[in-house]
Measured scan of single mutants.
Amino acid sequence: EPLWIRPDAPSRCTWQLGRPASESPHHHTAPAKSPKILPDILKKIGDTPMVRINKIGKKFGLKCELLAKCEFFNAGGSVKDRISLRMIEDAERDGTLKPGDTIIEPTSGNTGIGLALAAAVRGYRCIIVMPEKMSSEKVDVLRALGAEIVRTPTNARFDSPESHVGVAWRLKNEIPNSHILDQYRNASNPLAHYDTTADEILQQCDGKLDMLVASVGTGGTITGIARKLKEKCPGCRIIGVDPEGSILAEPEELNQTEQTTYEVEGIGYDFIPTVLDRTVVDKWFKSNDEEAFTFARMLIAQEGLLCGGSAGSTVAVAVKAAQELQEGQRCVVILPDSVRNYMTKFLSDRWMLQKGFLKEEDLTEKKPWWWHLRVQELGLSAPLTVLPTITCGHTIEILREKGFDQAPVVDEAGVILGMVTLGNMLSSLLAGKVQPSDQVGKVIYKQFKQIRLTDTLGRLSHILEMDHFALVVHEQIQYHSTGKSSQRQMVFGVVTAIDLLNFVAAQERDQK
């Protein structure tokens, strides 16, 4: 057995438009009618409502009807409940999964919650491996369901041993009777949507819809739904939504950006999952974080739909894509998950301010006199920076000697690579993860907040409520011999709460 199987392995699926269902090699399930009293909570997966979006479509000038398939009504709160249950049931049916076995899954959280929910009911041990950027709410729900959680670096490539995929496979090879159901490759993922989600949409719309818009992560949702719609409703256009920084969209030119990270969760990847059939997507749109969270908040405030950030991405694209539809036509959007997962993220004004998705003037509360002053007023001194090749031991000596707790790590040209902190280095040394002679590049981390000289002290204040420091950066445009230009970030300084307090105190003292 291989040590790991690539999540982007070539698909062996034989589905073709027009091929009889009787030739399918898979076990198919028909939607079942729910009894009045459910035998367990797993029976509350599927049969989610279709809700008309009344205000947002009109606000953006849509002539067509805009409908939302509300997947956050599933038992675990997301569309991923469907595939989690289906993968477990299919693994039980073919004898792969037996009582007492362990389920391991690399996930952005929602599939993990679905699997942990099913594992709690069915009696399996469950280990979820997820990147650090995923919300604390997801972690809390997983723990409450009895799952064990392993976190991995957000910026690790999918084929790196440190990625959530790599760590999951390492655990599988170490733990007896453990299984990775593997949402990236498992046919049960798109089949769950082909058999149930798509049929529900067709039934709820009486077979009449002209466009379907869905955000894409593993691709199982859009693949399964689109294949069924292509068979039953061939005139329906399928629109895929991919965040900026991901590479799922086609044509490839759409993916060209210097951005590699994004805040919206559960969609987009740096590889093409095996289950994603991009041939059934008629057109791709890219979405960005700001519009995703703005539209998610709009869905909550104006439509009462308590959905997550990827739902915002989907609707932001839908109001663009559906401009081509006329009166009497219908566009369906998939709202994948609930706001429950993001209470401390985009639902929080403070978080939105820190990330730059909300401006101070958007909030009406009274601010102190210094709130709208610029960061450049602080008069920061030149920063202490270190090269990635310097040793951890030497870096600790320098920081202690100069009285700093942290320093930016830059390359020879001064471009920011990340940050090192005294606390992080000492804990890594004590844990045996690094040696004093190791290069400081081994303990770089990139989960820090950046701020510009033109940003306000109010925004800085919000950042420092949650973080010990902020890195002050400025952009530099560099022209190359080819005539092309590129933008790079340079370090201007490091600012802490002490710097802000000293500035405010000094100004008030001078005024007296």
Rank of each mutant, 00 (worst) to 15 (best):
T294F: 13
A301Q: 07
P243R: 01
F346H: 01
E465I: 01
I239T: 01
Q256C: 12
F271T: 01
R488F: 12
R350W: 12
Y262I: 01
P243I: 06
T279D: 01
I498D: 14
S486P: 05
Q478A: 08
G493A: 15
A382T: 14
D455N: 07
F271L: 04
L422P: 04
Y262T: 09
I451R: 09
F285T: 06
G393L: 11
F492Y: 12
Y445E: 01
I390P: 01
H468S: 13
R488M: 12
S427Y: 11
D411H: 07
L378F: 12
V333K: 01
F293T: 04
L305P: 04
G309F: 01
Q487L: 10
G418Q: 08
K446W: 13
L500G: 06
I272R: 09
V386D: 03
N255Y: 08
K286I: 01
V386I: 12
R400T: 01
K320R: 06
R509S: 08
I444S: 13
E252K: 11
D349K: 08
V473K: 07
G304A: 01
S313M: 04
Q302D: 12
L464F: 07
D242V: 01
L306K: 05
H462N: 07
Q450N: 15
V415Y: 12
F448A: 01
L299T: 11
H372Y: 11
K345Y: 01
P251L: 09
R330Y: 08
A321F: 07
Q376T: 10
K446H: 13
T257L: 11
F357W: 07
M419E: 05
M425H: 11
A322D: 06
V280N: 01
H462G: 12
H474N: 01
V415M: 06
K449H: 01
A249F: 04
Q447I: 10
S437C: 11
V495W: 09
L464G: 07
R452D: 08
S313W: 01
V491W: 10
I396S: 14
Q447A: 14
V472R: 07
G268N: 03
L471R: 01
V495E: 01
D349Y: 07
Q376N: 09
R340V: 01
F357A: 01
K402L: 12
H480Y: 10
L429S: 09
I396V: 10
V495G: 12
P436T: 15
Q450V: 07
G493L: 12
L399W: 07
Q406S: 06
L457A: 01
L378W: 04
N341R: 04
R488Y: 14
Q256L: 11
G304T: 04
L373H: 15
K355F: 14
L363C: 14
R278F: 04
T421H: 15
D289F: 01
V472C: 09
D289G: 01
D510Y: 15
A249D: 01
D438I: 09
K446C: 12
D362C: 01
T344S: 04
R452P: 01
P408S: 07
S437H: 15
A413T: 12
E475I: 10
T364A: 03
T274M: 08
K484E: 11
I396F: 09
M352A: 04
L254P: 01
L430Y: 08
Y479D: 06
F285L: 12
L460G: 04
F492W: 10
S310I: 10
A292H: 01
Q450C: 15
P388I: 01
L347I: 12
K366P: 15
E244P: 10
L417Q: 11
E397S: 04
R297T: 01
L363A: 01
L347S: 09
E377L: 10
G308S: 01
F295M: 11
Q326D: 11
L353F: 15
S486R: 13
